[in-house]
Design a protein around this nucleic acid. Structure first.
Length: 432
DNA sequence: GCTAAATTCAGAC
DNA sequence: CTAACGGTCTGAATTTAGC
C-alpha cells in the first residue's frame, strides 16, 4: 500500500461535538456541567447526548422511557428538540467554515467537508484555527479530521474526537504510513463511514475486524461479497479518492413529511387532518426548491412496537395528471385516496406524505390556453400563500382539511426558546 | 431472456 | 396515573413486469 504523502489532497471533515446539546448549552449556562440529552420528535428517542450522558451508557436512539429510571437517578436533563435553533446555529457555523477552504460540501446539519489543499502542509494549522474560530464566534466545540479522501477525513475526525492527545484535530497526511497503519489497526471496522451494523457483522465473519484489515483487503473480492460501495471504501481508505466534494446541494428527488402521533388515532377524519398538514409541509418545501411533483404517496400505519395490537400498514401512490406543486390539489387527491387505504378498527400511530417524481418547475409563460391559465392561477395562489405565511407565520392560512390544534400533535414537553430566530421567545431579565 | 420499473436493502445523520 | 420507540434522504441491488 503506497500513500504519496506530499501531494495528497487535504480533505477536512469538521463536525460539531454532540451538536444539539452544544447548541442548547450556548444559550443556557445551567446545562454546562450537567448530563443533557436532546430527544427526537415526540420526545421519543435520544438523538444527542452530552459526554456525561454517553458515560452513563445511554445509546444513540435509545427510547426515552427506557432510560427514565437512570435519568432520574443521575439528574439527566432531557430537552425536546428545537430544530429552528439548531438550523440557525448550523448556518452560522457553515458560513464561518466556508472562509477557510476553497471548496465546501455541507454534508449534514452539523458536518461539513472542506478542501484545505490550497493550504498544503499548513492544513493542520488551519484545522486548529477553525476550532478556535468556531469556539470564539459561536461557543460551539467541533472536531476536525483531515485525510486524502472523504472516508479518511471521516476516520481522522473520529480519532480527533476520541483520542485526547489530538485535542480535536487529526491529520492523517501528517503521519508516516507506519503511524497511520498502527492507528487503523486499533479502530473497529464499524467506525468506517459506509460500514453499518450489517456489513460490519459480515466483515467480522470474514475475519476483517479492524480498519487496517479492510484497507488491505482485496477490493474485487469484497465487491463480489458486498457491493461497489465496499470496493470504493477500500480505495478511499488507501488514500485514493473515489468520492468528490459536492458543493451544490442537488434538489430533493422526493420530499417526505410524516409524524408519529402522541396518541392513537382511530378515525378517517382525523387521519385526513394529519395528512392535510403533511401535505402543507411537504408542498411548501417543494415550492421552496421550485419543483413540481408528478406523484403523491400517502401512508398510514399502526404502532409496530405495540405487539399486543393488531397491526396494519398501507400506502397508496397517486399519479398526477400533470406535475404540480399545488397543495390544494394534493389535498383534494388525498381526500379521495385516503379512504382506499383506511381500515376501521386499528389504532393508527403514524401517517405521512411523500411527493415523488420531482422535477424543476418549468418557466411560467403567458399562454391563452385554459390549461395554462388554470395552472397560472394555481401558481399565483400558491405564491400568495407562501408570502402570507412568510410574513405572518405558517398558522395564518391553511386548508380547511387541516386542524390547527390536533390532539395527536407531537409531544415536546421541554422545548427551549428559539433564541436566535424569535425575539418574543428570548427570556427577559426583569428589573428589581 | 431482455430491459425497465418498482421495491427492498443498507446506510447516514 | 399510565404508557411511552424519529424523520428524511440516497444509491445500489434485487425483484417483478412487460415485451
Amino acid at each position: 500500500m503506497v500513500l504519496a504523502s506530499t501531494d495528497n489532497k487535504q480533505i477536512a471533515l469538521i463536525d460539531g461535538n454532540n451538536f444539539y446539546v452544544s447548541c442548547e448549552r450556548v444559550f443556557n449556562p445551567q446545562l454546562w456541567d450537567k448530563p443533557v440529552v436532546v430527544l427526537s420528535n415526540n420526545d421519543g428517542c435520544a438523538v444527542a447526548r452530552s459526554n456525561e450522558v454517553k458515560a452513563l451508557g445511554i445509546k444513540m436512539g435509545e427510547p426515552w422511557f427506557k432510560m427514565r429510571a437512570l435519568a432520574q437517578q443521575h439528574g439527566i436533563i432531557a430537552l425536546s428538540s428545537n430544530y429552528a435553533l439548531y438550523g440557525d446555529m448550523s448556518q452560522r457555523m457553515m458560513r464561518i467554515l466556508s472562509g477557510f477552504g476553497n471548496e465546501q460540501e455541507i454534508y449534514s446539519i452539523d458536518e461539513s467537508f472542506l478542501d484545505l489543499s490550497l493550504h498544503g502542509r499548513q492544513a493542520t494549522e488551519i484545522g486548529i484555527q477553525i476550532r478556535q474560530e468556531i469556539a470564539r464566534q459561536l461557543a460551539l466545540p467541533v472536531g476536525v479530521g483531515i485525510g486524502a479522501s472523504k472516508t479518511l477525513a471521516k476516520l481522522a475526525n473520529h480519532v480527533a474526537k476520541k483520542r485526547p492527545p489530538y485535542q480535536g484535530v487529526c491529520n492523517f497526511n501528517d503521519m508516516t504510513p507506519a503511524e497511520r497503519n498502527a492507528i487503523m489497526a486499533s479502530i473497529d471496522i464499524g467506525e468506517v463511514w459506509g460500514v453499518g451494523s450489517r456489513s460490519a457483522a459480515r466483515l467480522r465473519n470474514m475475519g476483517i475486524t479492524h480498519v487496517l484489515a479492510l484497507a488491505q483487503a482485496d477490493p474485487r473480492l469484497l465487491r463480489r461479497h458486498f457491493s461497489v460501495v465496499m470496493e470504493r471504501i477500500i480505495h478511499e481508505l488507501r488514500g485514493i479518492p473515489c468520492l468528490e466534494l459536492e458543493e451544490v446541494t442537488p434538489p430533493r428527488q422526493r420530499i417526505q413529511a410524516s409524524r408519529s402521533f402522541s396518541a392513537p388515532v382511530y378515525t378517517l377524519e382525523i387521519l385526513m387532518e394529519a395528512v392535510a398538514r403533511f401535505i402543507r409541509i411537504a408542498s411548501q418545501r417543494l415550492r421552496q426548491q421550485q419543483g413540481v411533483a408528478a406523484a403523491l404517496h400517502l401512508f398510514i400505519r399502526t404502532n409496530p412496537f405495540r405487539e399486543q395490537d393488531r397491526q396494519y400498514a398501507q400506502g397508496i401512490t397517486i399519479a398526477l395528471p400533470a406535475a404540480s406543486n399545488d397543495e390544494l390539489l394534493f389535498t383534494r387527491l388525498a381526500r379521495l385516496a385516503l379512504p382506499r387505504i383506511y381500515r376501521p378498527g386499528y389504532a393508527y400511530y403514524k401517517a405521512g406524505v411523500q411527493l415523488l417524481a420531482i422535477e424543476a418547475a418549468e418557466k411560467q409563460q403567458a399562454d391563452l390556453f385554459s390549461v395554462a391559465q388554470t395552472r397560472q392561477r394555481s401558481q399565483a395562489l400558491m405564491h400568495t400563500l407562501d408570502q402570507l405565511r412568510q410574513r405572518f407565520g405558517a398558522g395564518i392560512i391553511r386548508s380547511a382539511a387541516e386542524n390547527p390544534t390536533p390532539y395527536w400533535q407531537s409531544r415536546a414537553n421541554n422545548r427551549s426558546p428559539r433564541y436566535t430566530s424569535r425575539w418574543e421567545e428570548l427570556p427577559v431579565a426583569h428589573a428589581g
